[in-house]
Nucleic acid binder design. Structure first.
Lengths: 149, 149
DNA sequence: GTTGAAAGACTTTAATT
DNA sequence: AATTAAAGTCTTTCAAC
């Protein structure tokens, strides 16, 4: 699965999870090795799938989404599949997991304001009951997994 | 809050949310403008806070985390603050939101295997009751917000 | 697996439209 | 606000250790 991360790999991952646009030479300087070396390491980390990709993170608030909600969906009998399809097709849902238990899906939904909530959930009323919680703050904004071997 | 995104901004954001390491010249070619122009746009998008940062995404599975759990915490009276502190200090919790309702915190936790669950929740038993759901799949892995103005 | 050096490609600045 | 051109810098390849 993963051939143990040495100190260099760990340093590279730490830097790239902070700033994915760091150049090879800057990364090399911080790591105390040559540019071709870090480039090689990163390519290997990508090839093994440990680095899944490099992405820009956008601010929902700056985009006009004033609210986030956590919505739990409890599917009606026989509706699990169509519910999943609807969730995937709803682009205001920016994250969703299928989980054990009665509330089969847990989703994160973006709202311009609270007035939008009813309308956004309406398409799901035929397929599931929902429970909604409004996000008041995010004590742990998405952060990288601890690096273990 | 945000001075409307024109077609160029939108294209740039779309590309950078797919590959944050794209070079200016490649981005410029895809957008049909010059390199200094895209560089300028991206700088402005960063300055306005719309682009929060560029990060490498790591694979929890490739790091040896075979399971993910969604844990809901219902704090005991007077324990909200210490609970929040413990959550923040737990690096296996890679995301946590404080939400409305009885289950004041909703967290995403990484587990090497199911045997770890009890031990990881044990430190919280003095401060909250918990409800745990195991992630079976992720129909919507974290994706960018829809771009609106 | 890592390095150093050279060629080539990219980025950045500044002047211009 | 975007472009061009030039200077500087970074990246990449490859031979060597």
């Amino acid at each position: 699965m993963n051939d143990t991360l040495d100190a260099l790999d760990q340093l590279i991952l730490k830097e790239l999870t902070r700033d994915a646009r760091l150049g090879w030479s800057e990364l090399a300087a911080r790591a105390g090795v040559s540019a071709p070396t870090v480039r090689d390491r990163v390519r290997r980390l990508e090839d093994t799938g440990l680095i899944q990709g490099f992405v820009a993170e956008l601010s929902p608030r700056a985009l006009g989404y004033g609210l986030e909600a956590i919505v739990r969906f409890k599917p009606f009998p026989g509706k699990v599949h169509i519910l999943a399809d609807r969730i995937i097709a709803t682009d205001r849902i920016v994250q969703c997991d299928k989980v054990t238990g009665e509330d089969a899906f847990v989703a994160r939904m973006l709202l311009r304001d609270i007035a939008e909530l009813d309308g956004l959930l309406e398409p799901f009323t035929a397929h599931a009951s929902t429970q909604t919680a409004i996000v008041k703050s995010s004590p742990v904004p998405m952060r990288p997994p601890p690096l273990i071997e």
